[in-house]
């Protein structure tokens, strides 16, 4: 179970901007935007309860005021 959390598009991301600046200085002019986020890997015993995981992701792993969250179920 993987949860990705990134800042909402309307919230500025200074860390992403810093990476973008560095890419520019390294000559990678084609990159126009970088957004930095968090990647959580959760190991679940048995069959995961999707609703429960969705709730965990939205209430603890992400702050819905400023962050978007995306869940990816993996089987291995």
């Amino acid at each position: 179970m993987v949860v990705d959390v990134v800042l909402k598009p309307e919230i500025s991301d200074p860390q992403g901007q810093a990476v973008l600046g560095a890419l520019g200085r390294l000559g990678h002019d084609g990159i126009t935007s970088v957004r930095q986020g968090k990647h959580f890997v959760l190991e679940v015993d048995g069959t995961p309860d999707e609703a429960e995981l969705q709730q965990i992701a939205e209430t603890l792993l992400a702050n819905p005021v400023i962050e978007d969250v995306e869940l990816h179920l993996t089987t291995d």
């Binding site: 800042l7 919230i11 500025s12 200074p14 860390q15 810093a18 702050n63 005021v65 400023i66």
Partner: peptide, 17 residues
């Protein structure tokens, strides 16, 4: 307080990092 929902908004990384 913001995380607990008692106050609105959120605090994030300083713009100058």
């Amino acid at each position: 307080l913001c995380e607990a929902g008692l106050l609105p908004g959120a605090l994030t990384r300083n713009s100058h990092l």
